[in-house]
Design a protein around this nucleic acid. Structure first.
Lengths: 340, 340
DNA sequence: CGAAGATCGTGAATCGTTTCAAGCTACGCT
DNA sequence: AGCGTAGCTTGAAACGATTCACGATCTTCG
């Protein structure tokens, strides 16, 4: 069945195709009577315009927009893992900024797999997205160049790859903040808990903490590597922490999920938090405040991260040829509650 | 800059456009030497084929696929709120099923707004998605019909609207499960905590619980309505629970987030859980097991929900005209831990 | 040696829409 | 009456890829 086309509508309404097109795109150019007639025909035939043909004709600009006025664009946000509340907030921030500017956002996950990431990017390309905001997994400079050649602006989040706009949080500073706080409340045997495979940001947090501790004359902290950055693994870590000798009096976790699990299990095993062991998390997820022991943590400007990334992407498009890649670094912030 | 077209590639390789097209779509029809020449030209010019033109010509079938063989399709998942871990799991399930079948999934959020939902759906239409899996906010039968007319298969999740495939969890049964359990451990003054605006599923949970309690001769439970289904609001609810008279000895929360916040604040205010007040949540999010008091809750087959929805959508496409809408109802399951 | 296949390549037609120069009316003005 | 103008409408020319009926060569074999 040949999709009902603008031509049939025209015939039915007794006008030319040009006029139908005008009704669709610049209704003000068409006399009211004609307009109504055409609209009626559209309704009767259940006509929907063929977006492929539209795009073919109009070129890569202008995605849709009921009235051909605004260059409404589509942006894709590619995150590693949707289930991570962290990612959700970033996406939210990006979406807010994009929607505010009249653009659309959709998201995809790479599941930490370079192949899936590639597929997602390919998809964005096929769908003629205007840009991609991505937490890169396997994407390198070559891939970025290819995307750009296809007309996508690319903004990296939370990872550093040269030759592209990027926005990330200064995790080293975050690690320093956490370690300094533990030091500040008199802790001296500080351990770090993380998960494998350890994402770059966690490595940076660890480095920041290590640096601060070394500067304070304490030497690098022992590191506990769990199987994942999850509460379940946090619980597992509890035993290991208590088995260490000397037993730590402070623990810095690579994220809040680990910290929450850790605290619960420590408590259950009889250790008091923070009296015996102070715990600092990282992320400040919503549950942090409602944890068994309200969690002291390092708050990341997650929404801001998404927001800034979106702004960069839009700027890249706006500026076109004259665009210079920019790197935005956001500062984390210590939120002191009760666990440390 | 006019996008480099197949024509330029043809000129560069010294062949006709038809041949280039053949190299792209049916390489076996082209002599090896020519094929290589064309491929080289493509490489040099950085040519990428214009998907709009392709689709215009080939009709609504065949979405892409490097070699025109597989009908790889695009599905959109529209959820109310991405930050909700519940949604994340559903999306995951759907994505798994879709990817396993060689399709692509992307998602969009409606933010509980009918307008945003409409926009998201419009977007899926524009992108020629094959189907939409949606937790409807403002979508009614008319909207569904329109989508289907545009060639999208529509599957509803977690809500009931007639005239479409749908999959949902039997929340009434879930409510019954929770109430029966509280009854079973000897509780008699049972309250229900929920959030406004109250989503349909929560209403059903409440109804299920109410029915069970009434049948046990206890009368409808008092209902506490908080501002949201969040841990923060759960904490707020704690005071209200303790202020009630008679003080409840059992509380059923509309979701785990509320329950976790509630437990933490109850504990802090001196009430023992479950000794003084037993608490049952709903959802079984990952953190439920790691809460201050490991949470007894009703586990929803979240992944399965997404998975089933995806299967239904694919079936609808496969079956075409002969398709009959189906409703799949999944049963929730009680997970007993320590809070009740 | 010539005809019948194979094997490759060609180029015009086509998909449905937008765009735009040009045409047509009706009207107001001198 | 003649002319300019504003307001609508027209129809054909793109856009870039795919398709398909035909040529053009080259083999093969009676």
């Amino acid at each position: 069945m040949p999709q009902t086309s603008i031509r049939e509508v025209a015939r039915r309404a007794g006008v030319s195709v040009g006029t139908v097109s005008n009704v669709l795109n610049r209704p003000d150019l068409v006399a009211e009577a004609t307009r109504d007639r055409v609209r009626a025909a559209i309704e009767e035939l259940g006509f929907v315009r063929n977006e492929s043909a539209r795009r073919l004709r109009t070129g890569p600009d202008r995605t849709a927009g009921e009235f051909g006025d605004e260059p409404r664009r589509l942006f894709g946000v590619v995150v590693e893992d949707l289930a991570n509340p962290y990612a959700a907030d970033v996406v939210r921030g990006a979406e807010e900024a994009l929607n505010a500017a009249g653009h659309d956002a959709l998201w995809l996950s790479s599941d930490h797999s370079a192949a899936k990431e590639a597929r997602s990017l390919e998809l964005l390309d096929e769908q003629h997205a205007a840009g991609a905001l991505i937490v890169p997994v396997g994407l390198g400079p070559a891939g970025i160049r290819r995307l750009r050649a296809a007309g996508l602006s690319v903004v990296l989040m939370d990872r550093d790859v040269s030759d592209a706009c990027a926005v990330h949080v200064d995790h080293v500073a975050g690690g320093e903040l956490a370690a300094a706080h533990l030091l500040g409340i008199g802790r001296e045997r500080i351990a770090f808990v993380t998960g494998a495979p350890e994402p770059q940001p966690c490595v940076e947090r660890r480095d920041g903490a290590a640096r601060t501790l070394v500067e304070a004359g304490l030497g690098k902290p022992p590191v506990l590597i769990q199987d994942a950055l999850s509460p379940t693994e946090g619980r597992r870590a509890a035993r290991r922490v208590l088995d260490m000798s000397p037993t730590p009096d402070g623990v810095f976790c690579a994220n809040d999920l680990l910290a929450i699990g850790l605290i619960n299990e420590l408590t259950r095993l009889g250790a008091r938090v923070p009296a015996d062991i102070a715990v600092v998390g990282y992320d400040d997820i919503e549950l942090a405040a409602s944890a068994a022991v309200p969690l002291t943590t390092v708050k990341q400007p997650r929404r801001a991260l998404g927001w800034e990334a979106a702004e960069l992407a839009m700027a890249e498009i706006r500026e076109g040829k004259s665009h210079q890649h920019r790197q935005v670094v956001l500062a984390p912030e210590l939120v002191v509650r009760e666990s440390a």
